[in-house]
């Protein structure tokens, strides 16, 4: 937990992504032009968000199996940093859409799915805040978290593919990778995903530590109350 190397790695990668993302060579495509650089931010943010949500679900399952409150802390904080990334992903996507599709929020199934996905996880936070008892909160929100992830994946990745979407990989458009992903992009894109995941873990880790400290302090104050 106290290891610092991955935080340094995270900072290095993020700076690498920002500098190479804005200044490195990119393929020149019609319509998209230079905005293809947004791949490093928008697409990578969504993939990082999905990964974080997946890990969060794994910790929820672990909580239900083992019943350690720490697992639930991890799950909830990972979900929170994933929501943060989701909102950033929406904003970067909306900038991109404004310049390539001519509208900051075109009526596209994937966008609406993304909005619904964020709503699901905001509801998760609301559910968490409506319980007093810790164990009860942890158990019920873990159940909802697993359920939510199982619905989230179809909303984002399966349903838009069945209908017409402006995004690549939907409605007969080919996916990324197949035609416009050259090595210049790959060199920045894959590190970008790892960098964002590390950043999300870091955010979550800080908040988990605050939570753990608060819990220890609360318990200490309760026991000291008993003494006096």
């Amino acid at each position: 937990m106290r290891k610092i190397w991955w935080k340094i790695l995270c900072i290095v990668i993020i700076f690498y992504v920002i500098i190479m993302g804005l200044m490195g060579p990119v393929p020149h495509l019609a319509i998209i032009n230079e905005s293809i650089r947004n791949t490093y931010f928008h697409v990578a943010l969504w993939l990082a968000m999905t990964t974080l949500l997946f890990v969060s679900m794994i910790f929820s399952i672990r909580y239900l199996n083992k019943g350690r409150i720490g697992d639930d802390d991890i799950a909830s904080e990972l979900a929170k940093s994933a929501i943060f990334f989701g909102i950033l992903g929406c904003l970067t996507g909306s900038i991109w859409a404004n310049y390539t599709w001519g509208d900051p929020w075109p009526n596209d199934p994937k966008l609406n799915g993304a909005a619904v996905g964020i709503l699901i996880y905001l509801a998760y936070l609301l559910l968490r805040s409506s319980f007093e008892d810790e164990q009860r909160k942890a158990r019920i929100s873990s159940v909802y978290n697993i359920f939510a992830f199982a619905v989230f994946i179809p909303i984002i990745y399966i349903l838009p593919r069945l209908t017409d979407s402006l995004h690549p990989g939907s409605g007969g458009n080919s996916t990324f990778g197949s035609y416009d992903f050259d090595n210049d992009i790959r060199k920045v894109f894959y590190p970008a995903i790892i960098g964002y995941i590390l950043l999300g873990l870091w955010l979550a880790e800080l908040r988990i530590r605050i939570k753990v400290i608060n819990r220890v302090r609360d318990e200490a104050s309760i026991t000291s109350d008993k003494v006096f």
Binding site: G113, I120, S130, F131, R136, I140, V151
Partner: peptide, 20 residues
């Protein structure tokens, strides 16, 4: 039903999930 304000929660939790 496990929470206190279950009527609001029911709508907030179910609408996004039921949407697809």
């Amino acid at each position: 039903s496990k929470a206190d304000n279950s009527a609001t929660l029911m709508a907030v939790l179910s609408f996004p999930i039921i949407l697809p």
